[in-house]
Amino acid sequence: MAFAAFATAEAVPQAPKRASRIGWFLLAPGLAYLALFFLTPLISLLLTSLQAPDLYGDIGAYVYAFNWQNYVDVVSEYGEHILRSFGYALVATAAALLISYPIAYYIGVRCRSRPLLQSILLVLVIAPFFISFLLRTLAWKQLLSDESFIITSLKALSLMAPDAHFTGTAFAVIFGLTYNFIPFMTLPIYTTLERLDTRYLEAGADLYGSPATVFRKVTLPLSMPGVVAGTLLTFIPAAGDYVNASRDFLGGTDTAMIGNVIEANFLVLLNYPAAAALSIILMAVILAIVGVYVKRAGTEDLL
């Protein structure tokens, strides 16, 4: 599973130092692919973000320039959206972690003596992937729209104000993000907890650690590689997500995230430099946050 590979990537022993032509030969297709489909678009994106409007052309026509003013413009215009994106992503990541950790612990540690139950629960975690996440998010919109059974019932029971909405609120967007990324959080945590040697827990108890202390001092630190992998797999895509926050799905006009702004600039406003500049900013901020996070989490010490 890809998640297992992600979680154990740091444990790979050092490769032999000897330069090997076979190694380069095997790497070549991957390197060529990345150069063509990752590096080229990235350079193109960078160049686009610095373009200036073509004074003599139509709307949507730009010429190559060194117009760094684009960055200043998008930050002042969309600063709120950028902050909102990272805020939503942060809350959704935290919520997904709180929901996923107990699930992963139950499947990975408590169900060890019952392999059949363990497999069934794992399949249930992965099951949502069998349906496109667009359809699933759309289904939630149906279930939670103002005319839906759930919302009308809640209103009839006076548990919700008559003029309140669920869809279109920040809560709905964060709910959608959390829901969609729970499997990405659960699986890497599961893979580390599944390998957790319970003898360490016994040793913790033997050394006067209460169950809560043993969890805090032993279980949690030992499962940090999974937690780091899971939070990254959730936070990075969630920060750039434009489906949940879209008005067509769970979002509204005042819940737009950076992804929605990029989409609008690119497809509706035809402001390609602004969209490109926002994309570069999104990428840079994520890189910075992830860099600090991974360094602070200190996962390299764990393996």
Binding site: R199, Y200, A203, G204, D206, L207, S210, V214
Partner: peptide, 16 residues
């Protein structure tokens, strides 16, 4: 276990 005045040297050592 954690309230007993007993300590164990485990067969597997179980060092954290």
């Amino acid at each position: 276990a954690y309230r007993r005045p007993v300590n164990t040297v485990f067969q597997s050592y179980a060092l954290f």
